[in-house]
Simulated assay, not measured.
Amino acid sequence: MLCLVEECIHKAIMQTAEWANIVRVLRRLHGLTPRQFALMIGTTTEAVGVWEKSLDVPGPFMQAALRDLLSGHIENHPTFLGVKAMVRATDQLSALYTPGLTVHALSRPLERMFVTHQLEVLGSSMLPKLSGRNGEMAEQYSLPMLEGKSDVLSFSYTDRGVADPSLIVRQQVTVIPLDGLRVLATVGLPLGMSTDSSMPEPDLRLTTADDVRS
Rank of each mutant, 00 (worst) to 15 (best):
Leu184Gly: 00
Pro165Met: 11
Asp151Trp: 14
Met126Asp: 05
Val173Gly: 06
Leu146Val: 08
His117Tyr: 12
Lys129Ile: 05
Leu55Glu: 12
Phe114Lys: 00
Phe155Gln: 05
Thr98Gly: 10
Thr16Leu: 12
Cys3Trp: 08
Ile13Val: 12
Trp51Asn: 07
Gly82Glu: 09
Gln63Ile: 07
Val87Trp: 03
Ile22Asn: 01
Ser71Ala: 12
Pro128Asp: 15
Asp151Ala: 14
Phe155Cys: 04
Thr43Glu: 09
Ala185Trp: 05
Gly31Trp: 04
Leu181Val: 03
Ala47Val: 00
Tyr157Val: 00
Phe155Tyr: 14
Leu146Met: 13
Leu110Trp: 03
Asn21Ser: 13
Ala163Lys: 00
Val169Gly: 03
Leu167Cys: 11
Glu18Thr: 15
Val50Gln: 09
Gln92Pro: 01
Ser214Arg: 02
Gly59Phe: 03
Glu136Arg: 11
Gly49Tyr: 08
Ser124Arg: 09
Ala89Gln: 09
Val83Asp: 09
Thr98Tyr: 06
His117Pro: 09
Met126Arg: 02
Gly31Ser: 07
Glu7Arg: 13
Gln15Met: 14
Ser166Phe: 10
Thr158Ser: 12
Met126Phe: 14
Thr98Trp: 04
Ser142Gln: 11
Arg170Phe: 05
Thr102Glu: 02
Arg67Thr: 13
Arg182Trp: 06
Gly180Thr: 00
Gly188Ala: 09
Arg160Gly: 14
Pro34Ile: 05
Val162Gly: 00
Phe80Trp: 07
Val212Gly: 15
Gln118Gly: 04
Leu2Asn: 08
Leu110Tyr: 02
Lys129Val: 03
Thr158Phe: 13
Ser94Glu: 01
Gln172Asp: 12
Pro58Cys: 06
Val5Asn: 13
Leu206Pro: 05
His10Phe: 11
